[in-house]
Amino acid sequence: MKNRPEIAIETRKLAYHYPGEENISSPAVYGINLSVKRGEYVSLIGPNGSGKTTLLKLFNALLAPTDGEVLVEGISTTEEESQTEIRRNCGMIFQNPDNQLVATTVEEDIAFGLENLELPSPEIRKRVNRVAGELGLEHLLKHPPHLLSGGEKGRVAIAGILAMQPSCILMDEPTAMLDSKSRQDVLGAVRRLNREQGLAVVHVTHFPEEAARADRVVILHQGRLIEQGPPALVLNNLQLLHQLGLQGTASSELAALLRTDGFSIPQEILNCQELVQSLCSSELKN
C-alpha cells in the first residue's frame, strides 16, 4: 500500500438530497467536512435516520453529491470513469449480508470480485483461502451461502470485500446480526488489517462498546456532523448522547451514575477494566 495518499477519504461541504423528498429544506446530509486518514479507524454514530448510511454511500460513489464533493484517494467520486476504481479501493459492507451474497457457494462468493478483476486463478485461490482462514470460514467454502447462519453470512460478505485488498473499508452496522464471538472475529480481522496494512475504516455502529475501540468517533444528527473526537471524550459526553437518543458504554453510564452518588471516578471511563480499576484503587479499597 505504498505511494498511497495520506488522506483516504475527504469531503468538502458535502450535501445530499434524496430525489423526490418532499422537504427540500432538510437534506439527508449537509455541510459535511470530514477527512479520514490512511490507517485511521473512524466510527460513525448517530440516531436512526441521521444520515450515516447515506454518507457511506456517498463515500464509495453509490450516490453522487448534490453539493460539495467527496475525494477518495484524491479522486472525486463524480468522475464517472474513476468510479470502478473508487469502489474497488473503498469496499462497502452492508447491514444485511443477504443483500450482497450472489454466488451459489461460499468460495465462489468470496471470489466474485476477484474474478471480475480478471486475476489469475492461482492468485484468486490464494486470496480466497487466506481471507477464509482469517474469518474462520474454511469449513464452509463449498456450502451455499443462503443456508448459513446470519453470523456466517456476515463473515462471508466481509471476506468478499477483504479479498479485493481495498485501501478503505466502509462498514454499515456489520455486527447487527452477529453473536459476540463472531463480532470479535470480524472486528478483530478488520482492526488487524487497519493496524498492519494501513486500511482506513469507517464503521457505522449503534453499539457504543464498538465505537469505543475506534481512533475517532464522529456523531451525525439530522444530516450534520455535530461532534467528533477521541472515544474517551465523545462517548463520555452523556448529556449530548442522551439528548440524541444515544448512549455511552455501559461502563461510562455506570460511572456517571456512581459519580452522582458521590464516587470519585475519572471522567474518561470507557470499559469494564477502566471502571473496575478506578473503583478498586479508590472507593472500594479494602
Binding site: 453473536d179 464471538k181 470479535q184 455501559a250 477494566q273 473503583l279 478498586c280
Partner: peptide, 21 residues
C-alpha cells in the same frame, strides 16, 4: 466458552469479585 457474553454491567460485577471484593 461458547463465545456468548453477559451484559457489560454483569462483567463489571464479576471483575470486582475477581479483584477480591
Amino acid at each position: 466458552k461458547l463465545g456468548l457474553s453477559l451484559p457489560e454491567v454483569t462483567e463489571v460485577m464479576h471483575c470486582l469479585a475477581a479483584a477480591g471484593l
